[in-house]
């Protein structure tokens, strides 16, 4: 191959691939709006707040960003809004061990941010993030599980609480809760956390008395 031929290969080859890329971009742009919900003013206001506070400097969203803090695109599917709002406005008040600083987010900005995160949660991401394939290992650990334990799993308590090293970190660790709290406190707290812990960010447990009873039984076994 002569130098000139090599040069032409480089120039025209690059142009060729760039044109294909432009074509795919054009096609993609036409399809994106159908793969996500409508963008309201409030969603956009939330996105502006997202940029204003540079959330991407700690978090990823749709998997891109920084790796210092959890992925947020689907967070509103995992945790209740009331809790998230309280966390956004003052993380350390919700969880004294939080690393996220208090950024000065107002109540309105927090609502907008959560609307925006609701929007990202509904984007069609070709199935990302995938469901953990070893999740069953995390659950009962092979042991026979009690009714209370199953309720604890199905009600998403482990998203916020940790028991024996498994679960979330935003609420207190419950591994020994049976030795620090009694039956009345636990059951009462489940029905109305804020009556027991002022400004508690824990969502009310909306369940029949029998279930609350079983959850409490389970808590009391944790010593």
């Amino acid at each position: 191959m002569t130098n000139k031929a090599a040069r032409n290969l480089f120039i025209f080859g690059s142009l060729f691939f760039f044109v294909i890329f432009l074509g795919l971009t054009f096609d993609t742009m036409g399809k994106l709006d159908k793969r996500a919900p409508e963008i309201t003013e409030k969603v956009n206001a939330g996105k502006m707040a997202w940029h204003k506070y540079d959330c991407i400097g700690c978090h990823t969203i749709l998997g891109n960003g920084s790796y210092f803090a959890p992925e947020l695109a689907k967070i509103t599917e995992k945790k209740p809004k009331g809790y998230l709002k309280q966390f956004l406005m003052d993380p350390k008040a919700v969880n004294p061990g939080a690393s996220m600083p208090k950024l000065g987010i107002t109540s309105e900005e927090a609502d907008n941010l959560l609307t925006f995160l609701d929007w990202t949660a509904q984007v069609d991401t070709n199935g990302w993030p995938p469901k953990p394939i070893l999740a069953s290992a995390v659950g009962a650990g092979g042991k026979e599980s009690s009714a209370g334990q199953r309720l604890y799993q199905s009600m998403g308590c482990s998203g916020c609480h940790m028991i024996n090293g498994i679960g979330g970190t935003t609420g207190p660790d419950l591994s020994r809760v049976g030795s620090t709290r009694d039956r009345a406190w636990l059951a009462g707290h489940f029905r109305d956390p804020q009556a027991y812990v002022p400004k508690s960010a824990m969502p009310k447990v909306e369940a029949p008395d029998a279930d609350i009873e079983q959850l409490t039984d389970y808590m009391l076994t944790l010593k």
């Binding site: 992925e71 953990p132 070893l134 995390v138 679960g167 979330g168 970190t169």
Partner: peptide, 12 residues
């Protein structure tokens, strides 16, 4: 990602 443990727990 595979086991489903919490992000912060793994990090910390």
């Amino acid at each position: 990602r595979l086991m489903g443990l919490d992000y912060v727990a793994v990090k910390a």
